[in-house]
Simulated scan of single mutants.
Amino acid sequence: MPKSITITEATRHFSGLIDRVRFYGERVILTKGGKPVAELGPTPLSGRVRLAELPGILAELPHLDPEDAAHFADDLKAARLTLTLPTDPWALSSTQAS
């Protein structure tokens, strides 16, 4: 559960508060007049994701409905059939070399 602090306290200790969010992933509820007004916490863009957060992140991702998933699988199969791989994967084709 996130800790609650007043905005005044957050202002006085802002640098330390940001460090706690950044390095420890803590979340803090900011209050004014005893009422919560904002939450300070790590963003998905911070690059730090705790393993325990992964199921929630994956659950929020968009999902294909079964019909679209089947069409996507068919498209992948068709693309793989038309794909020609070089016999030597380290050799550049003439189009890649230029």
Rank of each mutant, 00 (worst) to 15 (best):
S94N: 08
L81P: 00
L58W: 01
A10Y: 09
T8W: 02
E67H: 12
I57T: 05
L54F: 11
K77C: 06
L54T: 13
L83G: 04
M1L: 07
A52E: 14
A52Q: 13
L58K: 03
P86N: 02
A97K: 12
L64I: 04
W90A: 14
A10R: 07
R22V: 07
G34T: 08
S46A: 07
R50N: 03
L17V: 02
R27T: 04
D68Y: 01
G56A: 09
A91K: 15
T95N: 07
G33I: 13
T95R: 08
L51T: 12
L45G: 06
P86H: 01
S15H: 08
K32N: 06
A69V: 01
K3N: 04
G41N: 05
L81Y: 05
K32Q: 14
T31S: 10
D19P: 01
L92N: 11
L61T: 11
P62L: 12
H63N: 07
S15D: 11
E26D: 15
T31Q: 11
L81D: 11
A38G: 02
P42Y: 00
V21G: 01
H71I: 09
L61V: 11
S93P: 03
G56K: 05
P89K: 01
R22A: 13
T31A: 07
G41P: 00
R80I: 08
R80L: 15
K3A: 06
T95Y: 11
I5K: 02
T43G: 09
D74N: 14
A59T: 00
E39Q: 11
R12Q: 15
E60G: 14
S93R: 07
Q96V: 10
R50S: 07
P44N: 09
I29C: 08
I18S: 06
Y24T: 05
F72T: 08
L64V: 04
A78V: 09
G25V: 01
F14W: 14
P86Q: 00
K35G: 00
D75P: 01
Q96Y: 06
G34K: 07
A38Q: 06
R50I: 00
Q96A: 14
A38V: 01
A79W: 13
K77R: 12
S94G: 04
L17G: 02
R12L: 14
T84H: 07
L30Q: 03
L81S: 10
W90K: 12
D68N: 05
K32L: 12
D74W: 12
D88Y: 03
K35D: 03
D88A: 06
L61S: 08
H13T: 13
T8I: 04
S4W: 09
T87S: 06
V37E: 15
P42K: 00
S98Q: 13
D68L: 07
P62H: 14
M1T: 08
E26W: 05
A78I: 10
K35T: 03
L64Y: 15
R50M: 02
G33E: 13
I29D: 06
T43M: 07
L30H: 05
A78F: 09
K35W: 02
P42E: 00
D74S: 15
H63C: 03
P89R: 00
S98D: 14
